[in-house]
Design a protein around this nucleic acid. Structure first.
Lengths: 191, 191, 191, 191
DNA sequence: TATGAATGAGATTTCATTCAT
DNA sequence: AATGAATGAAATCTCATTCAT
């Protein structure tokens, strides 16, 4: 329960960007749901794009924190990779994570200025770097087969991205999809 | 090279939906690039959503045809699966395929009426069904390990979706990504 | 009485820019007085600045035409100069000339883009050039004292500008001001 | 160097009104450049129009003082008139005078209440009165030709106004303009 | 005196859609 | 089939002013 109206606006914006996407989320909808004056949005966040950037970064920061908590103390590289994937998929279906902000409002479609995209990109890079380090560890400790950590990280994240979209955006996702995806990863990387 | 203005409008619409996404593609932009009168759009296609549906279906139909051409005469189930994946990824980077219509304009965000979404969904279902049949064939002919064709199809398509987005929407995709993705699939499903 | 709505909008815009200045002239005021839809303004003129440029140029073109008509067939350089000045001052108090567009909306304050200013400037340059040629003629035909035509033109136009502002913008202008101004010019340039 | 924040705000307001004009000068810009709280503006000056009036009057008072200093001890009426004109033009290009407040923000466009306009007008009247008395003196002491002081004052001030606008607002003012203007006045009024 | 969050009216601009020709 | 003028609702954004602290 945010106390300041500024924080309240950010929370409301995250909800609505996730529900409606960037374009259909309007200042009117946000201010009405938050119960504040319309002008407060630009007062605090400057303009719509900056508000969206703030919302996206907020979600991304919580996401990174969750990934790190979860994969942090794994006993092996393989375990770290698996926990990373699990945490990724869990976060994406967590009701409170506002993950949909990142899915519905593709940063690469909705951001007009290169600078804002770069900020998002550089934060997302850290997701890749984390997974890479887990993969390298696994190769070293023998829990994973020999593989190129950089490109494998990109393949695995791609799978997360796709599975996630299938789950949260389509009506035909199978209940066992996430479980199967984890198996799939395990099969492909285990020593 | 479309001869009728109706066809010309559809081609132009596909280009622009792919370049700008649904919302930023306007009737004015389309009619100007196509060099025809503004009013012709509603005259021929009714409204924006119907035009988008026509554009999306057109791309999807070409996509399906390509998948079928390519995977059709494979010597084994495994080969069929691999050719399917290759064709999927190829199509998505083919300059002339207007694939980005399907990427930039998520049917699940940009379509307002359930009816239109259902039409897209049912066509997309066929992509899954095709891959499923290749997987089943592979299990039968022994070129693939024992697996659940339905959910495996969904996992593989998810990987295609994710790899494709990484490639066409982000600036950091590795050149070897698509190759590695194919290896990944091979490793996970081969007998 | 303009027949097309486009022309009607321009006429109305000239009136209102002259009455209220640039900022206080709103699309709402224009469209209401013209009796057309709000959106027609941007449909025909793109945006407010372009509309203003069109209005200003229109007034300026009529102004130039009037100056030329009047000073055209003067019997001497001196007469040409005097008729030029008279026409300048007359035009500025002509109810139908919409001269105030150029006074109230100082092009040098209200135009945001350098390009638009340049267009106005280059048209205004012609006013100077015309007066210069009258002055040169007068020096040659002996009706004027020896003088530098370029800078004298600028001084005389400055006097027109100032007298005009005193007359149309302030409450204390004397009835004999314009007459006296003409005497002033005559005294200063006559041979 | 103003010490109180109230004075600091007035100085900053004069700068900004001169740079941007009345409408584009916002409370936010002023308070940010001055480095004080937004609310202090209305606290000290009531509202925007009153602030503008304070700024305009401040410039006008310094202007009058300068005119009087300079023309005060002239040896003849003619000399007084010439010094008056010189001081007028000098003040208008003095970097520290904030003269542009009076040029960019035409009191006759930007002031909404008649009362505020009247205050400005009555102060400006004194400029005319001063010049008139110099002219009368000149007629009496024989340094000027016989002329109507009241209307001649208005003509001369008009020339100052126009020359000044040409100089500070347009890109094409000639370097010799001010000098030539002074000659022009001399020629027109000298005995 | 000093602060800056908060308000809401109003401005410009966009754009799908309609319609007369 | 073809044109493009015309419409008006809705969006983003600005900003003077108020007010609690």
């Amino acid at each position: 329960m945010p106390r300041s109206k500024k924080k309240l606006l950010l929370e409301t914006a995250k909800e609505l960007f996730g529900e409606y996407g960037y374009v259909e989320t309007t200042f009117k909808k946000i201010s009405e749901r938050a119960g504040v004056a319309l002008g407060l949005l630009t007062h605090h966040y400057g303009n719509k794009e900056k508000l969206f950037l703030a919302a996206g970064l907020d979600v991304l920061e919580h996401f990174l924190a969750r990934l790190r908590e979860t994969a942090g103390e794994a006993p092996s590289g393989f375990e770290a990779v698996m926990r990373f994937c699990e945490a990724y998929l869990d976060f994406s279906v967590d009701k409170n994570s506002n993950w949909l902000v990142l899915v519905r409002c593709s940063p690469y479609s909705d951001m007009k200025t290169k600078k804002d995209r770069d900020i998002m990109d550089s934060l997302f890079e850290q997701v890749y770097r984390d997974l890479e380090s887990h993969l390298e560890r696994g190769v070293k400790d023998g829990s994973l087969r020999k593989l190129d950590a950089e490109v494998t990280a990109q393949v695995i994240v791609s799978l997360m991205v796709g599975a996630n979209r299938t789950r949260v955006l389509t009506p035909y996702a199978l209940p066992s999809l996430y479980g199967e995806v984890l198996d799939f990863v395990a099969k492909a990387v285990r020593a």
